[in-house]
Design a protein around this nucleic acid. Sequence first.
DNA 1: ATTAGACCGCCAATATTTTGACGGCCAATT
DNA 2: AATTGGCCGTCAAAATATTGGCGGTCTAAT
Lengths: 375, 375
Amino acid sequence: MEYRPEIPGSQRTLHPDDPALHLVGDSAAIEEVRSLIRYAAATTIPVMITGPSGCGKEVVAKSLHRCSERAGEKFVGVNCGAIPRDLLESELFGHEKGSFTGAIAQRIGQFEDASKGTLFLDEIGDMPFDMQVKLLRVLEEKQIERVGSTGAIPIDTRIISATHQNLDQAITEKRFREDLFYRLSVFPIDIPPLKERRDDIAPLIHHFIQQIGGEAIYFTAEAMEILENYAWPGNARELRNIIERAVLLFPGMMISASQVSTLFRRRASNAPTYQADSLPSRFPGAPEARPFMDQSDRRGTLGGGFDLKKHLMQEERKYLLSALRMAEGVVAEAAHLVSLRRTTFVEKMRRHKIERKMALGDPRSGLVAGSIRSE
Amino acid sequence: MEYRPEIPGSQRTLHPDDPALHLVGDSAAIEEVRSLIRYAAATTIPVMITGPSGCGKEVVAKSLHRCSERAGEKFVGVNCGAIPRDLLESELFGHEKGSFTGAIAQRIGQFEDASKGTLFLDEIGDMPFDMQVKLLRVLEEKQIERVGSTGAIPIDTRIISATHQNLDQAITEKRFREDLFYRLSVFPIDIPPLKERRDDIAPLIHHFIQQIGGEAIYFTAEAMEILENYAWPGNARELRNIIERAVLLFPGMMISASQVSTLFRRRASNAPTYQADSLPSRFPGAPEARPFMDQSDRRGTLGGGFDLKKHLMQEERKYLLSALRMAEGVVAEAAHLVSLRRTTFVEKMRRHKIERKMALGDPRSGLVAGSIRSE
DNA sequence: ATTAGACCGCCAATATTTTGACGGCCAATT
DNA sequence: AATTGGCCGTCAAAATATTGGCGGTCTAAT
């Protein structure tokens, strides 16, 4: 059994250690994105990534970068929407010392910084109209001028841009230059919103749990169902937030459906969850009626939908049943298995309405775990 | 955001709906097997699958069949080791009516049955030596003769064989014909034992849980660790058995490390787990000493390693902490969240040595789950 | 500075759970 | 047929948990 054949031509060509594969998810959409990334990575044509907020456009951009020949070079990201309009030019192209108030020293722009590498222009749709012109010229001339400088510097930067806006519309509304659009969007990659690729949700959750670290968390089937069917208006970013929250709140725990819903609910910061009935505690009518209990103690099942006592009961029940099954119906042994005294076990059985026969599923069932005979 | 580009040449060539991909696992070994399957599936050369018992040789064979052009045709499996020696010939080649005692009617052999399709000869290493000769002739002549018949029937059957034996050794010991071996093993596929591809264990577990159906089960990280580090002498088959057992014993539950170990332990069918000390209950020395309690009640932590009470306490503790964190340290609200009265909650906190401040991890933490602003 | 509301901890009364001990049943042995 | 060993179910007493109330602290508004 030691001969491992060498089959010619069956080399590992299908799964090179391809960074595009590091994208999380198996949905058709993600597979498509992977294909597109592989394709685009072999070139240096400008790529535009579109998709709603938080769906991971930057992740895709980075993946593309790492798939490309420039993987060893820098990947520089600029959020065109986040940078104040008057700083953007200097941010992108740099400036010479003293070129404007506050320009204390010379500064290298991101274009230059990313030379030989990849420049990621995020939220390109938010770029001011006049900057669009300058950007276009840079792209066409393949060289930049620092602000306040006269000399041009040739650049060799791969451009990936991204936006969550509908640029078609922006163009119609004259907020975005059509010529720039065509320059940037030679190779478009669209990422559908998370809700259109439900298959990715489970893998993403798994990924985020790993990534966040700390004690792992688990979701029941129903909990997963909720997560998979939520609309995720904030896409992967929102999902990550929820998972972060879950890891924080329920470390090492199995998270149930009802708990998932509390993950979505924001704690009503001050005003407690009380129903609108707490006011007339000393109201004329029926003054002594209610026994005036501590207002903070309010009973009833009106909890966060979660009932600890009930949960513990269920948990106990499950274990009693399991133990009984393991012991094949022998109460004394079942009790022993869960470190209870027999009588206690019996009591609990009565309370839970568990009968011995409930454990005796199939007396046959030749489940002999350890004994493996030759095939 | 509606433009989904059509990129020429980026067609889905990488992931055809390839049945080889249905093999479970991502280990290098399984990937290798997948490659070999794809390669072999394009041909009709004889494939021999080797690997230890229970590692899924038949699964691989079926996958290969379904990858091949014969996917639409029959896949017939014969366990050469399981069929009594004198029936094997008739089983494989069929017989004519009355050709031997008991041959009441004519019977089509598996070779014929699998014509145009694939014949899977499992445990070929156990085939009687004289049958090996007959098999070899059939393979060379590409035609069979039913037992008791004179006419030959041409066949077009793809042969996949498998064995867990070391055929090299069998050949040395003259138990297996070398010429037949070379005939069958033109394209060998070896499947390493499960313990050498730990990476596959988790996917396999997942797969089996799905396949078995019923309420899902979950494993804690430590439980998974045990499962992943067990030696699995029975390979995938044993793993499946254990998972079946687990699904039966712990439906819908999170399975802990200690419970996993009980999965491996076989219930000592009759002789109960007791220590060897139950006999001298009325022994001369110290006759009244021990309070003579119900023998079946034996206390102490000597359970199956699992302590239900402790477990429930831990469970409670986890939820108390979670609730307190959710309520950002406000006990009354935390109590409310788990449907307990505040005072009860406080009591429990005291018992569990939980303090309010333990919940106040970081008062900052702008975890605003729902609010997703534009990127 | 006072007041009101939201919370907290502690306590005695009440409710539930766990324990130990018994007596009975059943099947295998003597 | 009687005995033994292994189990089962029930009961009263002891151990624990939960409840309702109260008095007090702290903060924010009056």
